[in-house]
Simulated assay, not measured.
Amino acid sequence: MATKPMTKTQLVAALAEKMDSDKKTATSALDAIVEVITEEVSNGGAVTLPGVGKIACRERPERMVRNPATGEQFKKEADKVVKMTIAKALKESVNS
C-alpha cells in the first residue's frame, strides 16, 4: 500500500534539518526555488534540478479528442503542458 506524499510542512521541516537552519529560512528557500522554476518554465524555458530531473514546458498541437462520456469528438486548441523528466541517478537509487 502506498504512503501519503510528503506535505509542504514536512518538506520544510526536513529541509530545515538538513540545512541546520530554522523553518522560516527553509520556507523562504523553498518558496524562492518554486518561484524561479515557475518563472523560467512559464517563459518557455527549462530547469534542471541536479540529481532529480528536468522540468520543461512543451507545446501540444491542435488535435481531435473524444469525450468519454458521450463519445462526441471535438477539436482541442493547441496548448502548453509542463513535463518532468526524471534523472537517471534518481531512477537508479529508487531501484537499488
Rank of each mutant, 00 (worst) to 15 (best):
V12W: 00
V12I: 15
A14K: 12
A16G: 05
A16T: 06
A16F: 04
E17Q: 14
E17C: 05
E17L: 13
E17V: 09
S21F: 06
D22I: 10
D22K: 13
K23T: 08
K24S: 10
T25D: 09
T25L: 13
S28Q: 15
S28W: 12
A29W: 07
L30V: 13
L30D: 06
D31P: 05
A32N: 12
I33Q: 06
V34L: 15
V36G: 06
T38C: 07
E39I: 14
V41T: 05
S42P: 03
S42R: 14
G44H: 08
G44F: 04
G44C: 02
A46R: 13
A46M: 12
A46D: 10
V47M: 07
T48L: 10
L49Y: 06
G53P: 03
G53I: 03
G53S: 03
K54H: 02
A56R: 11
A56G: 07
A56Y: 09
C57A: 15
C57I: 03
R58I: 08
R58E: 09
R58H: 09
P61S: 15
E62C: 05
R63F: 03
R63G: 00
M64G: 10
M64Q: 10
M64Y: 03
V65H: 02
R66W: 02
P68V: 03
P68W: 09
A69T: 11
T70I: 04
G71L: 04
E77A: 15
E77V: 15
E77F: 09
K80H: 11
K83N: 10
K83A: 12
I86D: 00
A87Y: 02
A87E: 04
K88F: 02
K88S: 14
K88M: 03
A89H: 00
A89N: 06
A89W: 01
K91T: 13
S93E: 14
V94H: 08
S96V: 09
S96K: 14
